[in-house]
Nucleic acid binder design. Structure first.
Lengths: 336, 336
DNA sequence: CTGAAAGCGCTTACAG
DNA sequence: CTGAAAGCGCTTACAG
């Protein structure tokens, strides 16, 4: 029952002997499609179970040339949305018998060195596909992954140069939703707090906000620079408070900065949502905290990860993977 | 340079041919300890590099019986401290050429089923060690891991029955620090907000708080039930506000519940820290947010993960792994 | 110090 | 439908 016979791992040969068949038969019994007499298969599978046998994946991969491994490189798990996406991805892979080889690429000093060893490792494991998630994985990392010649998938971001496939939340569409929402509340002086410079998601979100505004003949009274951090939101609130006339709504690039914005606005003596509406993006757990009660745009996390795994599992992938955009939804809470 | 020759992977045989030596020599050149003439090794390594060769880990593992794989099972990455610990662990392993096989065990419906497939997978990869992290991984999961007969390490929690080794933050000591801190501020009516029922960390933290109080001849005016969530802290604040006389300090089981506590206290019209001090535990990123500015106890994350990896790498492990406790530190901020 | 040979555990044409 | 045989890419005694 425990996969061992006298201290050593039980192999297909052990099962074969016990079941009175050849090793080939054991191998076939485990492949659904292989021709094996039904009763034989049953007997083999049963004795395999009794002996606690399961095929050695390493040997399997070596001989068949197929690996279950998928490289997953992420960064900044400290950002709740990254953690959520990553966790959902790992869980989905697990359910599909895909095996994630995880790499944390926290940008900064060690990034390049870490990247080298990561790619080295990936190569040595015969990995054939890599998924990059989180906007914080730098373009340098993307370039390096593309250079490997492996199939690279992007999750929740796309490549501006269109060099590789991606499955993303349609954040531009989500931005339109948010903008329309504050407009419907009768807000008229709407500011935007931008996300991390250079990030695809940041550009798209901002574009969505602006589109939503212009659809109704409006435009932003200001676009404040930001970087997706709580801190930048807190600081930007001072700018908001100084503006004349004051904005009556702020569309923030993400929830983290929206949380900071709310705190900062309170510090400036402004009331949310009475004086000003605040909308975030991502729907992280903190958005639901009573201190923020943040209206936000949620990402289709589950659809994204299953769509991505779908691609990874596809045996006949297209020459070049497309960029798929999945719809976001508005999550109304108390902040606006 | 790209690890492929005419579309296929380059093997040791290719390098051997190119360098004019036998395959054995190529293999030896990559093992530091093996006898190889210095100039030979250099030549081999150089041509390997030119050809983009690196040993196939799968084959290596198969023949040598050593796997670089370490099972890592975690749960609830939505809890920032879990995400941090997990990220640090993965990063540390990466640096040490250990390969984490990650499993997300979100408790609930699928836990048992997920557990089965996880263990099945682990077995099939010839994994020999498992590290369990996060208090939220249930005892049922621990039992199942122990049943495999593999070496199981606990990170940031211990087993009450002492069945397996662990490396943890000394949260009891951290609790003492926190209690002493509020006492030094002259606080006298100190309440405790408890953590998740049954969790080792929760028990230890509470014990530390109580110890710290009793060291100075004090004791808690109340121990409120909690579950480590932001919500429970928010709710507990109502109880605090109703108490007569009101407590002037609350020692919370973790930062999440401390954040909720602060929000709840404000909602009750109490001022922090003027009316009441609030102390958390974990030092998650949110603790530093200006809305909370939470005084807390930080975990020795880096020492913990490197100590753990040390154990994993140890070729001559003790019969039974010890429980190592690493010291926590008080992080003073504005909440008390 | 170096090469030929055996073997890790498995899959997959190849003949029956 | 089934077995014998070759081979995936590597390491490691075993003889030189």
């Amino acid at each position: 029952m425990d996969g061992r016979i006298a201290g050593k791992t039980v192999t297909a040969a052990d099962v074969a002997k016990a079941a009175g068949v050849s090793r080939s038969m054991v191998s076939r019994a485990f492949r659904e499609t292989a021709y094996v007499a039904a009763d034989q298969r049953e007997k083999i599978l049963r004795t395999a179970k009794d002996l606690g046998y399961s095929p050695n994946v390493l040997a399997q991969a070596l001989i068949s040339g197929k690996t279950p491994f998928v490289g997953v490189v992420t960064s900044g798990l400290a950002n709740p949305i990254h953690a959520e996406l990553y966790g959902a991805l790992v869980q989905e892979m697990q359910a599909r018998s895909l095996v994630p080889l995880s790499f944390q690429m926290n940008s900064g000093d060690g990034e390049v060195a870490g990247l080298r060893t990561a790619i080295e490792t990936i190569k040595r494991f015969e990995v054939r596909q890599i998924v990059l998630t989180s906007f914080a994985v730098s373009d340098r990392v993307l370039d390096a992954c593309l250079d490997t010649g492996l199939r690279v998938h992007l999750l929740n971001r796309a490549d501006d140069a269109g060099r590789t496939g991606a499955v993303c939340a349609d954040v531009a569409q989500g931005g339109v939703l948010a903008a329309r929402h504050v407009l419907e509340q009768g807000r008229t002086r709407i500011a935007i707090l931008d996300g991390a410079p250079g990030a695809w998601t940041a550009r798209q979100r901002r574009a969505g906000y602006e589109q939503g505004l212009s659809n109704a003949g409006h435009s932003a009274v200001a676009v404040l620079p930001g970087d997706y951090s709580e801190r930048c939101g807190f600081l930007a609130a001072e700018d908001i408070a100084r503006m004349q006339p004051r904005p009556d709504a702020v569309l923030c690039a993400n929830d983290l900065s929206a949380c900071g914005m709310i705190t900062g606005l309170h510090a400036q003596g402004m009331r949310v949502p009475d004086d000003i509406a605040v909308v975030g993006f991502d729907d992280i757990p903190q958005a639901a905290w009573s201190s923020f009660d943040l209206t936000t745009v949620s990402l289709p996390v589950q659809p994204m990860v299953s769509q991505l795994c779908e691609r990874v599992e596809d045996d006949a992938p297209p020459e070049i993977d497309p960029v798929t955009l999945l719809p976001c939804a508005l999550k109304r809470r108390g902040s606006g």
